[in-house]
Design a protein around this nucleic acid. Sequence first.
DNA 1: ACATTGACCTGAGAGC
DNA 2: TGCTCTCAGGTCAATG
Length: 263
Amino acid sequence: MPELPDVEKFRLYLQSTALHQQIRTTSIVDAAVLKGIGESHFSESLRGRTFEKAHRHGKFCFLRQDDQRFVFLHFGMTGFVKYYTKEMTAPEHIRLSFEFTNDYTLAYNCQRKFGQVGITNDIEGFIDSEELGPDALDGEFGEDEFIQRLQGRRGMLKTALMNQQVIAGIGNIYSDEILFQQRLHPKISLGQLKKTTLQRIYTTMREVLTKAIHAEADPAKMAPSMLTHHRYGDGKCPSCKADIEKIEVAGRRSCYCPSCQDN
DNA sequence: ACATTGACCTGAGAGC
DNA sequence: TGCTCTCAGGTCAATG
């Protein structure tokens, strides 16, 4: 699932559930999801800590601890978090969990183990070391910088939008949505785009992501004018009712309307 | 510098 | 019902 809107949903969820509770124990069910830290070191450094705030950059979520360090969470393709009590059904595929002194558990779940969890001293340093681009919805990330980061690149627009080093947060689904909203073919290359088109793409990117957040990243809750609303359902273009086509672009399945996006 | 491919993992759903 | 095959919203490394 998790692209920027999904991760923002997780951040808000964490923000409203798992903060200010003392951690009693940490269970590591599958150490494969830990990155850059060993099992025992991870558990020890979290014992007795509380989470004070949830942050996000691109597809990464950060839980600030009361010692000012951060647990970072990446969700891969199948990750999510759940806060629950023993009376509630535990999620499947728990990879690690925090048990709080209020008897609630915060579980990090990931069916395929593409996600990762670790500890970092500061978010800025983490972003630098991961070489992440600016968060797609960051208030500081304006149109000029967007154009600057895309202009002069070669290759396809979709690839650049999904490249976390260029812009952080966009994946396969929302790059398709941005392309659809601008009626651009998924294989269009950056060299074909005028500056005015890039300006419109920037605005569309922000709108698409903002709308998706408002819809809680749930395709069913999105406006019918959005491609994402149709890609799992009727498979019809919301504009012209043509069948949505699926082609492979940059190794990913790309959905588009062959009639509206025929440039 | 970029595209392509395969690898990493696991399970849901389709088709037989 | 049970088996096999295909596919999945991410990322990385190797290769062309």
